[in-house]
Amino acid sequence: MAFFLETLLGGLMSGMLYSLVALGFVLIFKASGVFNFAQGAMVLFAALAMARFSEWIPGWLGIESLFVANVLAFAVAVVIMFVVAWLIERLALRHLVNQEGATLLMATLGIAYVLDGIGQTIFGSAIYKIDVGMPKEPVMMLESVFEGGILINKEDFIAALIAALLVISLSIFFQKTATGRALRAVADDHQAAQSIGIPLDRIWVIVWCVAGITALVAGIIWGSKLGVQFSLSTIALRALPVVILGGLTSVPGAIIGGLIIGVGEKLSEVYLGPFVGGGIEIWFAYMLALVFLLFRPQGLFGEKIIDRV
């Protein structure tokens, strides 16, 4: 029982990390109808920027404190993601308005190549570390309930907390601010939003910026767990089942989907994996999402698809 709970909690926490990446997808799809395959590349790019600047800044400014260096690097990385978002909107997406979904998807794949290339040219392609002072040691919990207690990774726990905080602040931003309302209006209906004077260009830049910042947060957390390296950009592929399971247009869907996928993956790997040779978590997540989709083709929380002739 304790082992099962431990696996379950591990799954929930890794699920939160998936939903962090999935959030980026959902934000952009909601506001502009672009299925952004470049999200993984953005995570890698942001993490690379963060890792390298936190390495360089102490040398440039002569700062000793790790904390100050990290804060400065974070600020620089945020600015960089703003610039990236602006450039993507300005140079690519603005010219692709009203194209088909598949074309836009391919365009974001092209953007992903460009980001991968530029990121590795500027920041180098070795493995870097991000050290934001996450505690690494595991802790025991509920020792009074179970014999031996449950082993929990503190780092995962903090990461899940950060993810939850980010989601809450994003929901407040979407629900309570004027910009958030404009974003929701654009997501609802482009033309109607435009006709009441919401500037589409600016909204898209904002959305890409927000997606860039979620990418940065995801990049920092994943990067401090796994190290910043090229394979970081493939976590977008791990987050895709989360997105379709939760629904392409739903922020809470991304969270719940992430939790379901995280738990499903961990449980299947532990209880099913040994029978079929292991390593099944990546396709199992997709199968799991597929099973849900067979019953709800628009994902758990997606907008209902209505067919009209």
């Binding site: 392409l248 292991g278 390593g279 990546i282 396709w283 997709y286 199968m287 999402a289 597929l290």
Partner: peptide, 24 residues
């Protein structure tokens, strides 16, 4: 049942499944 971009992602299931199958 599934259409459009949802289907595109669903077909990735085949990709990852066969990748895994031929390795394992």
């Amino acid at each position: 049942r599934v259409r459009g971009l949802y289907l595109a992602v669903a077909t990735l299931a085949a990709q990852f499944f066969w990748d895994w199958a031929f390795l394992r």
